[in-house]
Simulated scan of single mutants.
Amino acid sequence: MRAAPASGTERSAAVTDDSARLTVYTDGPSQAGVTVILSLGFLMTADVWRLQARALSAGGVRVVRYDQRVHGNSKPGRAALTVDRLGAGLAHVIDATTPHGPVVLAEHSLGGMAALTAAARHPELIRHRRPHVALISTSRSRAQLVPGTHPLHWIKAAGRAGYSYPLCWLPPAADVARHRLPSRHPWAFRPATQHHGDSPPPSRQAIRRTPTAQIAQLWKSLRTYTTAEMLHALHTLADRVEIVTGELDDWIPLSQTHELARQLPNAHMHEPVMGARHRLPTDRVGHATATQVLNRMAQEGLRAPASTAPPR
């Protein structure tokens, strides 16, 4: 499996059918026997996968990361910004970057929701490619402000509501406030700022150039999103689907993870990573588990029969 690793990260773009320009980052040897495609969460950039990209590519695996539309260096398209659109974007990235060969799809949080939507809307992709799929800190149902019943959860919910509702209903005023935030604040609005180089911008710069109205549009979609009773395509993958989460995840609580596992009875749900929180790929405790799972799935992908691209 081990091949000479590529020198550095290669940056490219995938343009979707509605003209969204998705910035793609590729690491590892171009002739690797398996490709791991990494999809990111809400208000993050592909930089959230930096530890996994480094480890996997050093082991001879080709790694493809990309910024979701309106995140990082990616641009919006003509279509409304919805989870369905993110799922279509993932399918497009797979077609554009890895039309042949074994594939591992690793999806974190919002990226997992996009993957579930892609499986529901593009079942031929699953049937023909038969990827290994890692659903990390993700849910099959809408985003919730209240992560649990503990009093601290209600305090967190109040804080989240305190910024989410103004964002959704007063985006111009939110833009004015964001212009006045310190430059290092993750919500700072600096549309003229450019990130140079081939590597993705830090996650704190995920929405540096994103108007609040676009963030609000995606948040509203997240609040109504569901793939309940729509995951038949993933059932056929059986134990190729694995579910990983952190014990202390307070964005996608364990109750939602267990519900996802019930919707995918053939999937393997790992024991929650003790002490790990939502951002598992960079979590101080959980990042090693995420890397180990993906490395093992890549090895299994190499042993799988050769796959072909689906008719699109």
Results as ranks from 00 to 15, higher is better:
residue 2 R to E: 03
residue 4 A to C: 05
residue 6 A to I: 02
residue 11 R to Q: 03
residue 18 D to N: 01
residue 23 T to D: 08
residue 27 D to I: 07
residue 38 L to C: 11
residue 39 S to P: 01
residue 46 A to L: 03
residue 49 W to V: 04
residue 51 L to I: 04
residue 53 A to R: 11
residue 58 A to P: 04
residue 68 Q to H: 11
residue 74 S to C: 05
residue 76 P to D: 02
residue 76 P to Q: 00
residue 77 G to T: 01
residue 82 T to D: 02
residue 83 V to N: 02
residue 86 L to M: 07
residue 89 G to K: 00
residue 91 A to S: 08
residue 93 V to P: 00
residue 96 A to K: 00
residue 99 P to T: 07
residue 99 P to E: 13
residue 100 H to A: 15
residue 100 H to P: 06
residue 104 V to R: 05
residue 110 L to F: 15
residue 110 L to N: 09
residue 110 L to A: 12
residue 116 L to E: 01
residue 118 A to M: 15
residue 126 I to Y: 09
residue 126 I to K: 09
residue 130 R to G: 05
residue 138 T to N: 09
residue 140 R to M: 13
residue 141 S to M: 06
residue 147 P to S: 10
residue 148 G to C: 08
residue 158 A to P: 01
residue 160 R to I: 04
residue 168 C to R: 14
residue 168 C to P: 01
residue 171 P to Y: 03
residue 174 A to I: 09
residue 178 R to E: 04
residue 184 R to Q: 02
residue 195 H to F: 12
residue 199 S to G: 11
residue 199 S to F: 07
residue 208 R to M: 06
residue 208 R to V: 06
residue 210 T to H: 04
residue 214 Q to L: 14
residue 215 I to Y: 05
residue 224 T to K: 14
residue 228 A to E: 12
residue 243 I to L: 15
residue 243 I to T: 13
residue 247 E to N: 13
residue 253 P to I: 08
residue 260 L to E: 05
residue 266 N to R: 13
residue 269 M to V: 14
residue 273 V to K: 10
residue 279 R to L: 15
residue 279 R to Y: 11
residue 280 L to V: 09
residue 285 V to D: 02
residue 295 N to C: 13
residue 298 A to N: 13
residue 309 A to F: 00
